[in-house]
Computed example of a mutant assay.
Amino acid sequence: MKTKTTDAAPAPAVSLTGAVRAFGDVRAVDGLDLEITPGETVALLGRNGAGKSTAIGLLLGLDEPDEGRVELFGTAPTAAVRDGRVGAMLQEGRGVARVTVGELVGFVAGRYPKPMDVREALRLAGIEELAGRRVDKLSGGQTQRVRFAVALAGNPALLVLDEPTAALDVEARHAFWASMRAYAKRGHTVLFSTHYLEEADANADRIVVIDHGRVVADGTGEELRRAGGGSTVSFDLAGRGTEGLALLPGVTAVEVRGDRALLRSEDSDATVLALAALDAVRNLAVQPASLDDAFMALTAARADLDGLDDLERV
C-alpha cells in the first residue's frame, strides 16, 4: 500500500506573532502580528516613533521580544542570519577607513556560505565604477549604495532595507528602486521601510502601516486608499444649501469651500448617482484619495482609538 505524500507549504519568510518590546513604560512594539510569504515585496510605513525600527531590530535578531514570537523562514532570526539567508541595509553605520568598495563587499561576501559574485553585487547596486574607491572618501549617496551592495553580498533570500533612499537624490532613488525590483524578480523577499509614500506605492506588493507598535492597515495601495476614506466627490453648490448631503450614500464627511462642496465618500459611484438624482452635478469631479490622505486617516483613527482606551482605563 502506497502512502500519499503532500508537499508542506513553505514557512513564511517573516513571521511576528504577538511581538512586544517595551522600553520602560513605552511599548515600542505592542502585540505586532505580521506575516510575509517568500517572494513578496512589502513596504513598512509609519510615523517617527511608530515602532518600525524596533520591529526591524527584532526580526534581524538585534533585539529580543519581551513577549510573542519572531521567526524567519521558520527559524530564529539569529539562525537565519547566520545561515546567510538574510541581508540588511540599516540607517546607521560608518565607512571603514583605508578600505576600497570592492574590498569591503568582497570581505562581506566571504563570510557567507553561498555569496553573490562581487561584481554582480556592485552592478546591481550601480557602483561598479566605485570598486577601487576608498569607502571613507565617498559621498552620502554613494555610501548608501555601498550599503546596498553589502546587503546583497550574501545573496540573501530575505533583504531588509531600513529607509534605503534617505540620502539619495531623485536620480539615484530611481536607480536604486530599479535595482531592488530586479533583485525581487529573482524570487527573493524584500521588506523595506520608508517615509516616501509614493515609493511604497510604486515598489511594494503590500503596504503595512504601523502605528503605536501595531499594524493598523495591511494591503495594496488601492486597498489602503479605500480604507482611508475612498474618494472626494466635489461640485458647485450654485446657491443651494448643504442640508442632507451628509446622509447621501457613501458619504462620511462634508466640507464646504466657498461655493463648492467636497464630500468624502466610501462609495463614489453611489454618491454621484444620488447627487444626479438631486440635480447637483454642476462641475462635478471625483478625485481618488491619495496615499498621503489614507495614511493620515488611518493613523488618526488609531490615535482616536488609543484615546478611547485611555478613557476606559481611567
Rank of each mutant, 00 (worst) to 15 (best):
V286R: 04
V209S: 09
V42M: 05
L308D: 13
D304K: 07
A253F: 07
A167C: 00
G219P: 08
G68V: 09
G244T: 05
A157R: 13
A172R: 08
G258H: 04
V208H: 04
V281L: 08
A175K: 03
G307R: 15
D201C: 04
F176I: 07
F192H: 08
A13H: 15
R94N: 11
L130A: 13
L16T: 07
A76G: 01
G68Y: 08
R260D: 12
V20K: 00
T75I: 10
L152V: 04
G93E: 15
A294G: 11
L245Y: 08
A238Q: 11
T252N: 03
D66L: 01
P156V: 11
T75G: 13
A303E: 14
V29C: 06
P156D: 12
G49V: 08
V135F: 11
L16G: 06
T271C: 06
L247G: 12
V86I: 12
P288W: 06
A178E: 15
Y196S: 03
T54E: 13
G74E: 09
D63P: 04
V209L: 09
D293E: 10
R282Q: 02
I207W: 12
A43R: 03
G154F: 03
A43Q: 11
A172V: 07
E103W: 08
T5S: 02
R85C: 05
A131P: 15
L237S: 01
G57V: 00
D201P: 00
A227W: 14
F295G: 03
G307P: 13
V150Q: 09
K137C: 12
A28K: 00
P115I: 00
G239F: 10
A253L: 04
A204D: 01
W177L: 02
S179F: 05
